[in-house]
Structures are given as C-alpha cells and as structure tokens.
Simulated assay, not measured.
Amino acid sequence: MRSETRRVCRVRLPNLPLLLRTNRRAFGVYASGALFAAGWWIFFDACVRSHQLHRPPPEDVPFQPPEVAIKFDDWVSGLCTTTGLIIINMINKQYLLDDGALQSGSWNEDPILWRTRMWLFIGFAFLAGGMAGSMAVLIIKYLANTHAEGFIELGVAGVVQNLLIMACAVILWFSQRVESDYEYNLTL
C-alpha cells in the first residue's frame, strides 16, 4: 500500500505561519470573538442611526419622522442567532466523536449521544431561523415597503450581523475541535 501524496486542490495553498500553526485554537477563539463583536457593532450602529433619524431638530421647523425605524422585529433575528451560537458552543463535542457508540451501530440507544445531537440540531435551527428572520425583515420591511426608500441599510445591517455571528459559530466550532498544546492523545 503506497501513501497518497497527491494534492486535493489544483492550486497549492500557502502554509500557515508558524505562529498561527502553534496557536490555532487561540487564534480561532479571538477571530470568532472579533466577528461576534463586529456583528453586534454593525447592528448597534444601525440602531443609533435609526434613533438619530427620528430625533426632531432643535429649531421650530416642522418635522415629519420617517415611517421606518428599527424596532423589536429587527432585534429578534440577532437574538435568535446569538442563542444558537451559545447552544452550539455549550455542547461537549467529545460526545459527538465517541467511537464506541458510532461503531456499535446503536447510536439511537445511547441517550447522551441522542441528546447531544438534538441540542446541536436546536442550535443550528436557531442559527438558521435568525438568518431567515433577518432576510425576511430586510425583504418585507425595507425592500418591499415604499416608505422605506433610503433606509435599506438598516435592514442590511441585520443581515450582515447574522452572517457575522454565523461565521463566528463556524470558526469557534472548528477552533475548539483543534487539540490544545496541553492535551495529549496517548493510545497504544
């Protein structure tokens, strides 16, 4: 049996610098935290802009506030996505990688594995529901509404927020699966 030395990709991808290879877990955690903070920052910025648009001017000028503003329906999708992120990252991933339950073929009889997969499904459902909700708010409230012309960036901020939180969940999931420098896999 010969060892496979063929590449998977036609284009040779560059190797990660030594600093990133040795600290993959920490880099992934920091990068996911930055994505999470950036997502909520973008949404809070849209909330501040929405509030500024509805503030009357200080002079005695007649003021008609815009009919579109960020309200609770804009917040729900980000809260759902954040809840999904929390649920997914609270799962002990070792239960999903348990070789004993997977090799025996009786994973449906193992209650811990079943509950772990159920919580993982619920977390991903929250992530997908939050993303779908932000897209629905963008389309219904900001794109289809004739009174929302010029305020589409408020809806786009919610979609970008959810995309960044979902990217945070993916990076955090994979970075926590990387073995730490302090963990050793000793098998004989």
Rank of each mutant, 00 (worst) to 15 (best):
N23R: 14
L113D: 04
R12Y: 08
E109F: 07
T146H: 13
T5H: 08
R7S: 08
P65Q: 06
V11Y: 15
R6P: 13
R115W: 06
P17Y: 11
T22S: 10
R177I: 15
L138Q: 04
N145D: 01
S106C: 06
L16F: 04
D60R: 09
L85G: 02
F36V: 06
D60K: 09
E153Y: 14
V159F: 01
N145H: 01
M90V: 11
L102I: 06
F27A: 02
D60Y: 11
A34N: 14
V160G: 04
V11G: 06
G105K: 00
R49I: 07
G84A: 01
L113Y: 15
W40V: 07
A38T: 04
T81P: 04
V76A: 04
V178T: 14
Q161E: 12
R2A: 09
D99A: 14
D98Q: 02
Q64M: 11
L16Y: 03
L35C: 01
F174G: 11
G84F: 00
Y182C: 09
F124C: 12
N15I: 13
G33M: 05
R10A: 10
E153R: 11
S3H: 10
Q176E: 15
E149A: 12
V68S: 06
Q161F: 04
L18Y: 09
F174Y: 15
L97T: 15
L154P: 05
N89A: 08
L18M: 13
R55V: 04
V178R: 12
R55E: 11
W75M: 14
D98W: 01
A101I: 15
L186D: 07
V68E: 05
A46L: 01
I70Q: 00
D99I: 12
Y182T: 14
V29S: 11
S104M: 05
T22R: 13
E179T: 15
L113V: 13
M1C: 10
R21Q: 11
W107Q: 08
G84Q: 02
P56M: 05
N92C: 07
S134R: 02
E4H: 08
D110P: 06
G133N: 02
G133A: 02
Q52A: 14
R6T: 12
S180Y: 03
A26P: 04
A169Y: 02
G123H: 00
H51W: 11
P62V: 08
